[in-house]
Simulated scan of single mutants.
Amino acid sequence: MFKKSVPLESRTPRSGVLERTDVLDRVKALSLLPDGMHVTTAMVAAYFEVAGTVVNNLLSRHRHELQSNGM
């Protein structure tokens, strides 16, 4: 197990939980665009109940990693 803040700061712990998307469905359903695969920034912000600027900041900070994971 790891501290809650560790996955936010280090890529290695995040990689270990990358496939754990099942936990998202246990909390609440993630709405998808009609293609069933994509979401908008606004949809992600609504899911996590944060402002769109929070999502954009994370996108800016971790763009390379997110793109390498299929964004």
Rank of each mutant, 00 (worst) to 15 (best):
P34Y: 08
G70I: 12
K3W: 08
M37W: 03
N69W: 14
A46Q: 09
V54G: 00
L59Q: 04
P34Q: 14
F48D: 00
D22F: 12
H64D: 14
N69Q: 10
S31P: 01
V44E: 03
V54W: 02
R11T: 06
H38A: 11
R20H: 09
S68I: 05
D35H: 07
E49H: 07
V23L: 15
E65T: 13
V39D: 02
T41D: 03
S15P: 00
T40V: 09
S31L: 11
R20G: 02
R20Q: 09
T12I: 12
P7A: 10
G70N: 06
S68N: 08
H38G: 01
V27C: 06
D35A: 04
H38P: 00
V6N: 03
H62P: 00
M1A: 14
G16K: 10
M71R: 14
N69Y: 05
K4Y: 07
M37E: 14
M43R: 04
R61Q: 14
E65P: 00
P7R: 08
S15T: 09
E49C: 04
N56T: 12
N56W: 01
M1T: 10
M1F: 04
T41G: 04
H62A: 05
D22G: 10
T12W: 11
V50W: 04
E19L: 13
A46P: 00
R11A: 08
L33F: 05
S60T: 11
A46L: 03
V44D: 01
D35W: 07
G70A: 05
P34H: 09
L58Q: 08
D35N: 15
L24A: 11
G52H: 01
H38T: 15
D22I: 09
M1W: 04
L30A: 13
S15Y: 06
M37H: 13
N57L: 04
E49P: 00
D25M: 06
T40E: 08
Y47R: 05
M37Q: 15
K4D: 06
N69C: 08
P13R: 13
K4E: 12
A42C: 01
K28H: 07
S68Y: 01
K3Y: 06
V23E: 06
L24K: 04
V27H: 09
S5E: 15
L30S: 02
K3L: 14
L8K: 09
K4R: 09
V44W: 02
T53G: 06
M37N: 13
H64G: 03
A29W: 01
L32G: 01
K4T: 03
K3F: 05
M71E: 05
V17C: 10
V17K: 10
M37R: 15
P34C: 04
S60I: 05
L59D: 00
V17N: 06
N56A: 13
M1R: 09
V50Y: 02
V6M: 13
P34I: 09
L32K: 15
V44P: 00
M37L: 12
L18T: 05
V6C: 03
G16I: 12
